[in-house]
Simulated scan of single mutants.
Amino acid sequence: MTAQPIHPQDPEWVPRNAEGIAGALTGERRMEFYRELLGAAPEEAEGVLRRWWCEAMLDTDPAGDRLTAAALDGTLSTTAVADIVRRRREAGLPVE
């Protein structure tokens, strides 16, 4: 038996750049993204892009509403960061 991906399409259907993120957001959220990005200091811009990329991925995820509801209800399954770091190291993957 093999595990099936949650999303059969490309796991990064929102390009990791300002244009891709803005294209995935709508209306007021797109304007909020641009305001935050344009107001960020150069050393803060990468963090802004990362946060908003996550927002755009969730906004365009077919299961996004279910995940948001589970998070708000406290029923979303979680994993400790230490466990993820350990698994990545065991798999020989980079840990930043």
Rank of each mutant, 00 (worst) to 15 (best):
W53A: 02
T75Q: 06
M31C: 08
A70W: 06
G74R: 03
D59T: 11
A63P: 01
E19A: 12
W52G: 00
R16F: 12
A41L: 12
P42S: 03
D61I: 10
C54E: 08
I21V: 13
R30L: 02
P62R: 15
A56G: 01
I21M: 00
G27C: 04
D65K: 14
D59N: 09
L49K: 05
E43A: 15
G64Y: 11
A40N: 07
G23T: 05
L58S: 04
A24P: 07
A41R: 15
L72T: 13
M57K: 12
P62L: 13
E55V: 15
G39C: 07
L67T: 02
T78N: 07
A63L: 14
L58G: 01
A70Q: 15
R16G: 00
L37R: 10
N17K: 05
V81G: 00
R30P: 01
A45H: 09
E32K: 11
E43I: 14
E19K: 09
S77W: 12
A69Q: 15
A80I: 03
T79P: 00
I84Y: 07
T79C: 05
G27Y: 05
D61W: 14
P42R: 05
E44F: 07
G20C: 03
L76Q: 11
L76Y: 07
L49Y: 03
E46S: 13
G20S: 03
T26Q: 15
N17D: 14
